[in-house]
Computed example of a mutant assay.
Amino acid sequence: MCGRFAITLPNDAMARLFQAVPANDLPDVPNYNVCPTTQIHAVSRDADGQRRLGAMRWGFVPHWYKSPTDGPLLINARAESIAGKPAFRAAARERRCLIPASGFYEWSKDEQGNRYPWYFSRTDGAPMVFAGVWQVWDRGEAPLTTCAIVTCDANKVAGKVHHRMPVILEEADWGKWLGEEGRGAALLMKPAGEDVLRGHRVSRAVNSNRAHGPELIEEIED
């Protein structure tokens, strides 16, 4: 799964990277501890085919929920079942998005049940881009745009810590995931190559959703 991540790229740099029109209410950056239910950056296509960089609530809300907390918190969508799940199947066909990050956190567990956080980033130092799906929930006082990160089996690097990881898209595949280049998006929902990721242990300070500083991604000794 993916339950926390970091984003350090400035908003204007993100807009240029994705060739997207930025919204006026983008979340503050940098944020080294992005948590579920907060507003995150996401790139989607509007009705005219223009890419838009906007803010979405991390935590997908299906249209039948009576409130955002009416059911399970859906921060991840499993690649293996996304096309058949009632919550996600329409979004998987019609409402896919790109979710930029600098890296993500995962936790290992020892024999005593103690959990230790790890931080994974790209080996080439480039921004990381997750595959996402989005949904507008409109049963409240105001429409709420929500999203989930698509996950898949972990590759060998991430698999040393956890059996799942986010689907990481390469730049050449961004257009296909957004539906700009015809069909084939389903083929992108696979683990990143073994040479794409690197990971290291970090402080347990990241366990607190109140911690947001750059020290959270610094490597510590095992």
Rank of each mutant, 00 (worst) to 15 (best):
A42W: 08
A55M: 03
G213I: 00
I40F: 13
H63C: 04
N31E: 09
S203N: 12
A192G: 07
C147Q: 04
C97H: 03
R57F: 00
A6D: 06
E141W: 02
P62A: 03
P30W: 09
N114G: 01
P191C: 10
K160D: 13
A23H: 04
V202H: 04
P143L: 02
P10E: 12
C35A: 15
V21P: 05
F18C: 08
L216N: 10
E141I: 02
Q135T: 08
W118V: 11
G193M: 06
I40L: 10
L188H: 02
G175A: 13
E180F: 13
I168A: 15
I217A: 09
L9F: 03
S208W: 12
C97W: 02
A87I: 11
P214H: 05
N114I: 05
P30H: 07
L73H: 14
W58Q: 07
A192P: 02
P68R: 06
S208D: 09
V196H: 05
A83Q: 13
H63M: 06
D173Q: 04
A79S: 15
G54Y: 02
C35D: 09
L74H: 14
F130K: 05
E181C: 03
Q112R: 14
A42V: 06
I75A: 09
H163N: 15
G199L: 09
Y65M: 06
A87F: 10
T145Y: 11
G193I: 07
G113N: 07
A126W: 01
G175V: 07
A47F: 02
S108L: 00
G125R: 05
R183T: 13
D70Y: 04
L74G: 07
D195Y: 03
P10N: 10
V150C: 11
P127H: 08
V202W: 12
T37R: 14
K160P: 00
A91G: 09
G175C: 11
E219K: 14
G159I: 09
H162Y: 15
Y32L: 03
E170L: 11
F130P: 02
A126I: 00
R89G: 08
E141R: 11
P30T: 03
M128V: 15
A205N: 12
S102D: 11
W134C: 14
E219I: 02
P191N: 10
W118M: 10
G213H: 12
A47P: 00
P143R: 01
G71K: 14
L187R: 13
R115S: 13
V202N: 07
G84T: 14
P62N: 04
H212M: 04
P30V: 05
L74E: 10
N76E: 12
D48Q: 14
I82E: 14
Q112Y: 01
C35S: 15
D173K: 01
G140Y: 03
E194Y: 00
D173C: 05
E141K: 10
P10S: 09
P62L: 05
M189S: 06
T8W: 08
P10A: 11
D138K: 13
Q112G: 06
W107N: 08
E111K: 14
A101P: 06
A101G: 09
S208V: 05
Y65R: 06
A92M: 14
A148M: 08
L178W: 10
T69K: 11
R183C: 01
K176T: 14
W137K: 07
V196R: 15
I99P: 02
D110W: 12
P117Q: 11
R52T: 04
